[in-house]
């Protein structure tokens, strides 16, 4: 797994790339929580994720809950079909704000 970070439209964007599994999800978690600690609104870009396991999804859940507690905006963008089916299994597709890309999220923010 690789991680790219950038800023766009007032959001910090964390792009996860490749396989997000038990061996590397703690790195993604750390990065997500660090962004939120720095009081940044955050979007996690999953468009380049080839596989995400439930430890990866758990890090996203923890990130979203942390953001909510701090009144920060959080969401997922570019969720691939395989990542979506993992989210759907635990009905998390109904929990996360999910958009195709940053532009769509910004439009939804109004």
């Amino acid at each position: 797994m690789n991680i790219n970070t950038r800023e766009e439209g007032g959001y910090a964007i964390i792009e996860l790339i490749g396989e997000v599994d038990l061996s590397c999800s703690p790195v993604a978690r750390k990065q997500i929580l660090a962004c939120l600690k720095a009081k940044q609104d955050l979007l996690v870009d999953l468009s380049a994720v080839t596989y995400i396991d439930s430890s990866g999804v758990a890090s996203l859940v923890e990130g979203y809950q942390t953001a909510k507690k701090q009144n920060l905006k959080f969401g997922l963008i570019g969720v691939s079909d395989s990542a979506m089916s993992v989210l759907q299994l635990a009905r998390l597709d109904k929990v996360f704000p999910i958009h195709a890309n940053v532009e769509e999220r910004l439009r939804a923010d109004g």
């Binding site: 999800s25 703690p26 978690r29 439930s54 430890s55 999804v57 758990a58 890090s59 859940v61 923890e62 635990a90 998390l92």
Partner: peptide, 9 residues
């Protein structure tokens, strides 16, 4: 993380 994974399952 473990707690959330278990709850998800």
């Amino acid at each position: 993380t473990m707690q959330i994974m278990a709850r998800m399952k």
